[in-house]
């Protein structure tokens, strides 16, 4: 039996058991709602017992957003918004925010829906043409970018967005809605502005996206991975916005076999995978920066065989077929080039 089959059966079992979790959690929550004081801190008129289920913790602190552009405005409620924005609401209803906000609003009427993100709507309802009276997230909405991001971060602070302030996208004046659009289900996951994460990043980073079409590339155009597998666009502890602490740690997430540490290391490999590879796409084999043997000859000028200049005469159809230039060139013999765990591997021959 293939291991996949075994795992599939195990998963089915686990999933079956896991379906019991919500049932258990739900019972606990019901009991909790009865035994502890109300936890809704957003308004005074708490409706205890309004719902047996209670408000989900993620939406419990949802409140009308603060819009400095409309200081005297008051909340009007979702129904008023929908009266004019019926089509937007129809698209919104099938998104994740709607699912959560509507359920929370049912359990606690003080939790707003539209106005959680868009701020109090009374001023906008009276003068919809005036920009900035409602928090808008599109171009020409009149709402400053800082207000937009601050509103989203009121619920979505922390986690992957912990380093937003000071990150390169924030410094370049991007808003959350440059990449996300929670008003409709444009993408299968992530509430992106386009049909996929990759298409969203490609709006601005088209050159990087096109590099993935080259001869050697990772399976991003084929939909098997996304820019988000390596990068955290919301900000990170590294300059290239990597999700881990370093370039190599990012690569090891999928290429753990290269982690080692090997008995005999190859210094440029341990320092950074990008010394030899270019991550987005290359015209050489295996994402190399430059063809072999020239890649290696940038650092190696040792005596005997590394530092000879090869010409087309060294190729398979040349006067002197030379293993140092043919096929995979240097790494045909130095095959364990990322590091060798063989006691006879100081030069990566084994």
């Amino acid at each position: 039996m293939r291991s996949t089959d075994a795992i599939r059966r195990l998963l089915a079992l686990v999933l079956g058991c896991a379906t019991l979790v919500p049932a258990l959690a739900q019972q606990s929550r019901d009991e909790l709602a009865k035994s502890l004081p109300p936890t809704n801190l957003t308004s005074d008129d708490v409706q205890v017992g309004a719902s047996m289920i209670g408000v989900a913790p993620g939406f419990a602190n949802a409140k009308v957003a603060d819009n400095p552009g409309a200081p005297g405005a008051t909340a009007v409620g979702e129904r008023t918004c929908i009266a004019c924005h019926r089509l937007e609401s129809e698209h919104f209803t099938h998104t994740f925010h709607a699912l959560g906000l509507h359920a929370a609003s049912k359990a606690d009427a003080s939790i707003p829906v539209c106005e959680t993100c868009h701020g109090p709507g009374s001023a906008h309802a009276k003068d919809p043409g005036a920009k900035g009276l409602i928090i808008g997230y599109t171009k020409d909405s009149g709402t400053p970018i800082e207000t937009q991001t601050k509103t989203c971060l009121a619920c979505h602070a922390g986690g992957p967005r912990d380093r937003w302030l000071g990150s390169v996208h924030q410094r370049n004046g991007l808003s959350c809605t440059d990449c996300h659009n929670p008003m409709a289900k444009f993408s299968a996951e992530g509430l992106m502005a386009r049909a996929s994460i990759n298409d969203t990043c490609a709006q601005c980073h088209r050159d990087v996206r096109l590099q993935f079409n080259r001869r050697s590339h990772m399976p991003l155009p084929e939909g098997q991975m996304s820019c988000d597998d390596c990068h955290n666009p919301h900000g990170s502890v590294t300059n290239p916005l990597l999700k881990t602490n370093s370039v190599n740690e990012t690569c090891y997430q999928c290429h753990a076999e290269k982690r080692g540490p090997f008995l005999f290391e190859h210094a440029p490999v341990r320092e950074s995978c990008l010394n030899c590879h270019t991550p987005h796409g290359s015209n050489q084999q295996t994402l190399l920066v430059t063809p072999l043997p020239f890649l290696c000859q940038q650092c190696h000028s040792g005596l005997r065989h590394p530092n000879d200049l090869h010409t087309p005469g060294s190729l398979g159809n040349g006067a002197h077929p030379d293993e140092r230039a043919m096929g995979r060139a240097c790494v045909t013999c130095h095959a364990n080039i990322h590091g060798s765990n063989a006691p006879s591997g100081p030069k990566f021959h084994e």
Binding site: V76, R79, T80, C84, S122, A125, K126, D127, G129
Partner: peptide, 27 residues
């Protein structure tokens, strides 16, 4: 002028103008 938030009625002035002559605030 203010609509009826409890029922979900938006202020008519939003589209029909503060003076009901449909001159909306901004151009």
């Amino acid at each position: 002028r203010d609509g009826d938030p409890a029922r979900g009625v938006p202020p008519c002035q939003g589209c029909h103008g503060l003076d009901a002559r449909a001159r909306v605030g901004a151009d």
